[in-house]
Design a protein around this nucleic acid. Structure first.
Length: 270
DNA sequence: CCGCCGCCCTGCTTGC
DNA sequence: TGCAAGCAGGGCGGCG
């Protein structure tokens, strides 16, 4: 499931491939995944647009268009953005295809149909409800301490709340908490400043390391080239039920917290 | 504002 | 062996 490092990898891959290309036509096979403002036709509006940039915000891939509009893609769990020349057989769950003037195509495919491609207008504050970028300069240890003050919610649930910190999903929340030696269920407000600083460091380190390794391919994630990531080979807890903890040797457990599977070590996460 | 819950959807796993 | 039920999960809207 694509989280910040996977989406960053996808965005970087797309940037080298599609910036500068002009959209000639758009095929929408599953209407509900292609979202546009009221009165705006998704396909007709995109036709003729030129791609001027590819960015990431939280877990969203943002294609910047020459008109000032943006095409914002949420991949959710199983969404993929794939570039090709249309020569090979298309991904069987392709819902939207952008056909460029030079014959290349950008396909949005998603088995579970949870992902969305959303066309937003110039200056539209589509990300107003999204929280701070964890790898941006705004996310300081002191700010993190302030964010957690008085919050009763379990720290792991807080990390997953996109309105607070944008881009952290289940894999990296579990990994960062393990690295910081913090129990996932700890109420946010009861963490010491020292522990919060440790968690801040762990979160930034885990995300950067995962980007270096081009993300984690846990289920079927692949980047814009169809390549798998490498972080799944260095996971400490995620998906490792029963395996010995790398730090203390106790078997990794799986519990459910906020309706999400949570992997952690009872031995060394306090 | 905050926390909690159900829904969306399909493929895989589990159980009879 | 075959089939149905259960489960997983990110974001969003609704509720208290």
């Amino acid at each position: 499931m694509p989280e910040l490092p996977e989406v960053e990898t996808i965005a970087r891959g797309l940037r080298t491939k599609i910036v500068g290309k002009t959209i000639a036509r758009v095929q929408v096979r599953l209407a509900k995944v292609a979202v546009a403002p009221a009165g705006v036709d998704f396909s007709r509006t995109l036709a003729g647009e030129r791609i001027v940039g590819v960015a990431r915000r939280g877990k969203y891939v943002v294609l910047g268009l020459a008109s000032g509009r943006s095409l914002v893609t949420s991949l959710r769990m199983t969404g993929r953005l794939l570039v090709g020349d249309g020569g090979g057989s298309p991904h069987p769950y392709t819902h939207v295809t952008l056909c460029f003037g030079d014959g290349d195509r950008l396909a949005f495919a998603d088995v579970r149909q949870f992902g969305r491609m959303r066309l937003v207008g110039p200056g539209e504050a589509w990300d107003a409800a999204l929280g701070v970028e964890p790898l941006g300069g705004d996310f300081t240890p002191e700010r993190f301490i302030g964010m957690l003050a008085g919050r009763t919610t379990p720290i792991k649930a807080f990390l997953l709340d996109q309105r607070r910190i944008a881009g952290v999903g289940n894999i990296y929340a579990c990994e960062a908490l393990w690295k910081a030696r913090i129990r996932p269920g700890t109420p946010a407000k009861s963490l010491t400043k020292r522990a919060i600083r440790r968690l801040h460091r762990s979160l930034v380190d885990v995300l950067n390391r995962a980007i270096d390794l081009r993300g984690s391919s846990v289920d079927d994630y692949v980047d814009a080239d169809g390549r798998k990531g490498g972080f799944q080979n260095v996971l400490s807890v995620y998906g490792r039920l029963g395996e010995p903890c790398d730090r203390c040797g106790r078997p990794i457990v799986r519990t459910v917290l906020g309706q999400r599977g949570t992997w952690w070590c009872r031995g060394c996460q306090r």
